[in-house]
Amino acid sequence: MSISKVIRERRSIKKDYKPDAVPESLVLELLNDAVYAPNHGLREPWRFLFIPTENKETFIERMLPVYAIEQQQTRRELFSAPAAYLIVIMKEDPRQKQWEEDFSATCAMIQNFQLLAWEKGLGVVWKTNPHNWDPKAHQVLGVAPGEKIVGFLHLGFFEEDSVPKPGPRTPAEKKFTRFE
């Protein structure tokens, strides 16, 4: 499959995951390619927390108290949908330039992961929910001071007929100018 085809056909898979477990070996295989994202000075500012299918219920029980009682049932349902999770955590550099370079590199690495996963038939959606910034969630997940959750990646295999249709994209020509 060509790179342009994978880029154009990849979709965020947000629901209708199969119950199949996501093998840790597959996640590691994808990550070992994804980390070839450009990153200034090869700082590799990321680390990963994998919640495998078999540990998902424990994860859910520990995460629910982060939310108000009236939100917990909805959160339980949302947390239960994916087969597994990959949480991408970035070390925060106090220098603005380096922080932005590291954040950009981490985002590029996540996009690499999504494209590689798509090629293997693994659905991913990159989420930035309120718990990404919540100190209680950080404590549950072992996110240390000086670290940032860049994304919760929801993982699961999917049926081909459940893939969302592509949304419209603005042609680059409409957002393109040339310096004169």
Rank of each mutant, 00 (worst) to 15 (best):
M1C: 09
S2N: 10
S4M: 08
K5R: 05
K5S: 09
I7L: 15
R8H: 10
E9P: 00
R11E: 01
K14N: 03
K14L: 00
K14G: 03
K15P: 02
K15V: 00
D16I: 03
Y17A: 07
D20N: 05
V22Q: 01
V22E: 00
E24Y: 00
S25Y: 09
L26T: 10
E29W: 04
E29K: 14
E29N: 12
L30H: 06
L30M: 07
N32W: 08
Y36H: 14
P38S: 11
G41P: 05
G41N: 04
L42S: 12
R43P: 10
W46T: 07
F48V: 02
F50L: 15
T53R: 06
T53D: 05
E54I: 04
E54K: 14
E54F: 06
K56A: 07
K56L: 05
E57M: 00
T58F: 10
F59V: 00
F59P: 01
I60S: 08
E61K: 13
R62N: 13
P65V: 10
P65R: 06
P65I: 04
V66R: 02
Y67W: 08
Y67E: 08
Y67D: 06
Y67F: 15
Q71Y: 08
T74H: 05
E77S: 14
E77A: 15
S80E: 09
S80G: 14
S80Y: 03
A81H: 06
A81R: 14
P82E: 13
A83M: 07
A84G: 08
V88D: 03
V88I: 12
I89A: 13
M90F: 12
K91S: 12
P94D: 11
P94N: 13
R95C: 14
R95G: 07
Q96K: 15
Q96A: 15
K97V: 05
W99H: 15
W99L: 15
E100K: 14
E100D: 07
E100T: 11
E100I: 12
E100H: 15
D102I: 04
F103R: 09
A105H: 03
M109P: 04
M109S: 13
I110C: 08
Q111C: 00
N112R: 12
N112S: 10
L115E: 06
L115Y: 15
L116W: 03
A117I: 10
A117L: 10
A117Y: 06
W118A: 02
E119C: 04
L122D: 00
W126K: 02
K127D: 02
T128A: 10
D134M: 05
D134Y: 12
D134E: 12
P135Y: 03
P135G: 00
K136D: 10
A137D: 01
A137M: 09
H138V: 04
V140Q: 11
L141W: 05
L141D: 03
G142P: 11
V143F: 03
V143E: 00
A144I: 07
P145T: 10
P145I: 05
G146A: 08
K148N: 06
V150I: 14
F152D: 10
F152P: 01
L153P: 01
H154G: 05
L155F: 03
L155S: 02
G156A: 07
G156R: 08
G156D: 01
E159W: 09
D161H: 11
D161R: 11
S162L: 09
P164E: 07
K165S: 10
K165L: 12
G167A: 08
G167H: 11
T170F: 04
P171H: 06
A172T: 11
K174N: 09
T177L: 12
F179Q: 09
